[in-house]
């Protein structure tokens, strides 16, 4: 019970955007002119913008992790390993809150944007399509805020990440989180959710696709391109 309260409190304290606000604004979409303006941006500028938004979201995930009972008791190597491997996955899970499945738009820089707004990302268009498909499938599960909170914690605290120094300790923390999640689902009669969650490999594949696209971008541009990207983004993905 205590752990559940801690997960929910940590999630609420570090949530970037409130669910009520996202819901209230879900039909506030970019105009045709605004979409065209985004499409006219250079590929480099659009990548930088997206990297900036991803980095902001990841900073909130780091704060979430720091508040999770037991996370800061893991050794420093393992804290970094878990965040490096899981932060982007958590951001993708959170995206289902900021996604309107009725018109396939996502909250981006103040309004809801369709996939076409990201056209200037160039070859990363496939990635955008896959991310939108993932958000759509997660939205279909209609997860509550407490469920998203637990899913975030469970994505992060994963004992099978490579390079962990104390996987047993991580595994123990994960087991407690799983028990808390099961109790929550039982209480809300949502046990069926566990069987309907997308396989873990799907998140991993999306993250690999993101890194591959970034590598392809680097191959096509001078190394100075990355200087304009947020340092945390470079540290995690470059």
């Amino acid at each position: 019970e205590q752990l559940t309260q801690n997960v929910l409190k940590s999630y609420h304290e570090t949530c970037q955007l409130r669910a009520e606000d996202l819901q209230r604004r879900r039909w506030d979409t970019f105009s045709r002119e605004e979409i065209c303006a985004y499409q006219k941006k250079s590929m480099e500028e659009m990548w930088q913008r997206c990297a900036g938004r991803i980095t902001e979201a990841i900073q909130h995930v780091v704060e979430f992790a720091k508040r999770l009972h037991g996370f800061m008791e893991l050794c420093q190597n393992d804290q970094i390993v878990l965040l490096k491997a899981g932060a982007m996955e958590v951001v993708l899970v959170h995206m289902c809150r900021a996604f309107n499945a009725d018109n396939r738009t996502v909250f981006f820089e103040g309004k809801y944007a369709s996939a076409e707004l990201f056209r200037s990302l160039g070859r990363a268009e496939d990635l955008i399509g896959s991310i939108f498909d993932f958000a759509q499938s997660l939205c279909a599960l209609q997860c509550s805020e407490p469920e998203v909170a637990f899913l975030s914690a469970l994505v992060l605290v994963n004992a099978s990440r490579p390079w962990l120094q104390e996987p047993v300790k991580v595994s123990r923390l994960r087991r407690r989180l799983e028990l808390g999640f099961q109790l929550l689902l039982r209480r809300t009669r949502r046990e069926g959710l566990l069987d309907r969650l997308p396989p873990q490999g799907r998140l991993r594949a999306l993250c690999s696709q993101h890194v591959e696209q970034l590598q392809a971008l680097r191959r096509r541009h001078p190394p100075a391109l990355l200087d304009a990207f947020p340092p945390l983004y470079r540290e995690l993905f470059a």
Partner: peptide
């Protein structure tokens, strides 16, 4: 840790 200086710093920075 050297490779993850920023992440390391964020983790060290209190609970804010």
């Amino acid at each position: 840790q050297e490779k993850h200086r920023i992440l390391h710093k964020l983790l060290q920075n209190g609970n804010s």
